[in-house]
Design a protein around this nucleic acid. Structure first.
Lengths: 209, 209
DNA sequence: ACAAGAAATGAATGATGATTCACTACTTAT
DNA sequence: ATAAGTAGTGAATCATCATTCATTTCTTGT
């Protein structure tokens, strides 16, 4: 034997892989999955197209990884917001706000994750993550029921409705125009987030504020 | 001049067009838009592929027509349910129920209309129709506020949340498996519809029942 | 029956991009 | 320096289907 994979090589490969991931991320955050071409990604990452395939099984696979990473980050943020002090209703509100506000801060990526039409494999991933959000919310709702700050209800169903209500409210503002641009008036943001949250909290608690 | 389009011919063409539409509808109701191939549709309709293009500009166009027709039918049903007697809250509930129940009765078509990843042009149509639903709901909410059976709120925002909550609740149950099948346990249906409606009405009225 | 046009046909074309793979360049151990 | 093996390359290939269009078939008015 003459060549053996060495630590240095391992690192170099890992770096290339990371660069590919970063550039894919950038492409997606810029125009969504559909418009992210392998050749473009390769170009950005400074590697040949073929090299992509030494690091990822397929385009679908690469995208799935991006999707998972990006979504997990969001899910974690929501989980974090749910993990503070205060009663369940307060924590839920903070979480919903977190979700919505982050989406509006990175609208194209949010659109890609939430609403962009994607291939079946990614759609699969999307369902998984929508479930992940729903489960976080569900847990919090159960807590709230136990604490008594949220009335008894089908926590699972309510959580699904929360996810849907937020997603739908964001899809309109987030959707790129035909020209591929996304524009959100800064003024609207707060009001939008506030009214989404009002509906959701009312749906949960049956209480107006 | 020797040939002139005659009534008989006009009818024959109209029939062919209709047959194409019907077969497209069938294909979509069977596997969604993505899997509906022009050649397959032509085969079913008993015409050559080229003939499709004498009746429709493009596949996209044909699909857009199917989408519009199918969705308009649903929107009309909801409008109908909203146009009965009773206070606004009652009518809204009936409308939501109509929406959800019809979706569960034709799950693949409902999925195709609500959640299937589709090309940009169809996605455009979809947004239009989601808006159409939202506007119906919005109107009813305003009525309710005026009547006093629904508390004052941002009707537009609430209507969007309604559409989202319902759609999201249905997407899970409606989504085809990898095998392309959709199965909904009969037992679940009523309970699902009931709990969606409970959340939504509570979100609207702030009243538990 | 014929000519003028229209409709229908479906094999061939075309467009799009992901993916491959024969080859080159590089790394390592001896 | 050399051999053995791996990584990188990117032009060529491949797959998928919508779409076209030269040709054939059908309709109609004379």
């Amino acid at each position: 034997m003459a060549y053996r994979e060495t630590e240095k090589m391992r690192q170099r490969k890992a770096q290339a892989r990371q660069r590919i991931i970063d550039c894919t991320y950038e492409c997606v955050a810029n125009g969504g999955f559909r418009s992210a071409r392998i050749t473009r990604i390769a170009g950005l990452a400074g590697v040949a197209t073929g090299t992509i395939y030494r690091h990822f099984e397929s385009r679908e696979d690469l995208f799935a990884e991006i999707f998972r990473t990006a979504t997990q980050r969001e899910v974690d943020k929501v989980a974090e917001a749910l993990d503070t002090d205060g009663d369940a209703a307060v924590r839920l509100e903070a979480a919903l706000r977190q979700f919505a506000e982050r989406a509006m801060r990175g609208p194209m990526m949010a659109w890609a994750l939430i609403a962009e039409p994607v291939d079946p494999k990614l759609e699969e991933e999307r369902l998984v993550y929508r479930r992940a959000y729903a489960e976080l919310f569900e847990k919090a709702i159960r807590d709230g029921i136990e604490e008594g700050c949220i009335p008894d209800q089908d926590a699972r169903q309510s959580s699904t409705c929360l996810v849907g209500a937020i997603a739908e409210s964001l899809v309109g503002p987030l959707s790129p125009t035909l020209a591929g641009q996304i524009t959100i008036a800064d003024i609207d943001k707060d009001k939008l987030v506030d009214s989404i949250i009002r509906f959701c909290m009312q749906g949960l608690t049956g209480t107006r504020r």
